[in-house]
Design a protein around this nucleic acid. Structure first.
Lengths: 358, 358
DNA sequence: CCGGTTTGCTAAACCGGTTTTGTAATCACC
DNA sequence: GGTGATTACAAAACCGGTTTAGCAAACCGG
């Protein structure tokens, strides 16, 4: 009979083999200075020869920490990962986590339930992105005693959070187009992921919209209701939104897209409609994702420090995780308009645009 | 004195409060049919009122499974996440994991050491991407008894793995250009991330190169050494590679890029050099990432089923995780050439290209 | 050489659950 | 009405570590 199921060696196996107690083995790994040097090294040698590695789960249990932070999103991960914005954000989170020696665990609705996914997650803290403060899970997470930092959603006063100046950025974007003489604007907004969810009055979308409206109001202008069209926040969504607006008879000379992905879709749809960018139509995005500088033409957009946002979120989170008595930090990062090639002076006459259509 | 540090309720608290044993509480959650219905519901009521949730780590320890799969990359996550290829792959992995009720844990070198990161990770299995079979960690992971599926690296015969037909795809790409009359080709290859790492003879890069060479050989042609230029696998890398080749006096009419990101960089560099695509120069990518169909012009490229690759990897992994006696599965997915707008007939005379340069 | 400290290690308790084993009470059956 | 099976729960062992409390021997100053 050969050895069957070569069980993973436990601390007791090492102890027996080395002729010491479990305690000694534990010390050899975690506080070698509490053992005689030769004992410690002998124990480690035995452990090596047995291929022993402390079981991470058991370790988590006794130490009461997992050295893992969770990234929470209300949407399925399979929807999220190919979103360049989320990728850049994750990059920032990963950087912050790596520097602090934490691993990353992604938490998304399991079998449709964020709550049960949260219940299974073994994390020391959570960075939530795209989660509104009124989301029911937020209270549950807090009740579970897990530190939470909310990103991009005006947090409760006693909660840590990281956000950006959406309104200011949007206002700058609209102002830029207005300054170039554009008066017929189209706003391409983000459709809430689930139709039954009423869009949050304090969500990113609402804040950006307020910025657009404020810029117009400052010049005594208004945004007609039909000049706002919504679609999913993707390239395809941008294409669809632009086409729909055109079919509805709208002939904007400037487009304000609430995300770069949508703006890229608008760029493409415009090209297919025979419009030249920026001669016939100007397009402004929002976010400044990596590819935006490489589109043709390069995209004028509102830059937000996406990576920094992720990194800051982790920093703020870990300060709470490691010192729970610290006051929760609230960060607000700046945005700024980056002018590239997709915007230019408004065409002189409406006819120019109409002609381009044929 | 108010209640200080409202400790998280444990199973013993619920048991005491409900006047039953720990066992009964555990049963109430995990196998309610073993209790009288009214007992079970009473226990659950008490648990609810106390806000009790079973501690996930303790649960992992006794059940000997974490319901989590790890995604392992030899590169830092902060480098990886903004890579659209990795995003799409992760999307597939996430889809497979979500369907099976598993969470996702990303494992990357912690303080530079993959081994220690792996030691801390609490996962039931690992999907490794971009890890060569000869990597020292591979043996360590197997020794730890953690099931491992390797993606994109010719796995050992007794190991599960998922790969794609790199060589065939590359051959089709080169064949396409040759069929269009191109004879002056430039291959834009991937630079190994760390200079000291010798490029794997069986890595993705090598396999694709073999495909290019095979297509040439089939027509009795050879690839001059100086027609291969390497750079990091990014848009910026593609730009740099193309510029460098041009400065070296190369005047290719067709470019074979080993990744779409690099191809997009080549597109941009070509435009800046005053070359029209595809009239003056044709560009073929590899991977078919999402944006490639939206570039200007849309990119001709070798499609590989990235998401499916991730999903398959999880499926293969979980079949081993859940039934260890199963034979390890090895998958090889197909690639196919997608012809879009970035390739066209080779220009008639070399002069045309040279003239375009001015 | 004696009381107190330090050194080097062990035994036992603990982290928070699950699972196995055990047992009293009830039920079914002949 | 005695016997064997079932039901409903409890006691104890266990998962694999860490940490606290404790103890014997060595050391140390006076």
């Amino acid at each position: 009979m050969e050895e069957r199921t070569p069980r993973r060696p436990r601390i007791a196996d090492v102890a027996r083999e080395a002729g010491v107690s479990k305690t000694a083995v534990s010390f050899a790994f975690n506080s070698p200075d509490r053992l005689a040097p030769e004992t410690a090294s002998r124990i480690r040698d035995v452990a090596d020869s047995l291929g022993y590695r402390p079981h991470p789960v058991a370790r988590m249990l006794t130490q009461r920490q997992t050295h893992t932070i969770g990234v929470l999103t209300p949407q399925a991960l399979s929807v999220i990962f190919s979103n360049p914005f989320f990728g850049a954000f994750s990059e920032g989170v990963a950087l912050g986590a790596e520097q602090a020696g934490y691993a990353l665990h992604f938490i998304s609705p399991l079998h449709g339930s964020l709550a049960s996914a949260m219940g299974r997650a073994t994390v020391d803290g959570v960075v939530a992105i795209g989660l509104s403060a009124s989301h029911p899970e937020v209270e549950q997470i807090r009740a579970a005693g897990v530190p939470l930092v909310m990103v991009d959603s005006s947090a409760l006063p006693d909660q840590p959070g990281v956000e950006i100046n959406d309104e200011g950025g949007a206002r700058a974007a609209a102002d830029h187009l207005l300054g170039l003489g554009h008066r017929d604007l189209l706003v391409v907004g983000v459709e809430p992921p689930a139709p039954e969810i009423e869009s949050e009055p304090d969500g990113t979308t609402a804040r950006r919209m307020r910025g657009y409206v404020a810029a117009l109001a400052a010049r005594g202008l208004e945004l007609p209701d039909n000049a706002v069209v919504v679609a999913p926040a993707s390239i395809e969504g941008g294409i669809a939104a632009m086409r729909r607006a055109w079919e509805d008879g709208l002939r904007p000379t400037g487009v304000l897209a609430m995300s770069d992905a949508m703006a890229i879709g608008v760029l493409r749809a415009a090209r297919e409609l025979g419009l030249r960018v920026p001669e016939d139509i100007s397009v402004v995005g929002f976010d400044d994702i990596d590819i935006s500088q490489h589109t043709n033409p390069p995209l004028t957009t509102v830059h937000q420090p996406i990576r920094q946002k992720g990194e800051s979120a982790v920093r703020v989170l870990l300060s709470v995780v490691e010192r729970r008595d610290l006051p929760p930090e609230q960060l607000r990062l700046e945005t700024r308009l980056i002018i590239r090639g997709s915007t230019g002076p408004a065409p002189r006459r409406r006819q120019e645009v109409d002609r381009a259509r044929s």
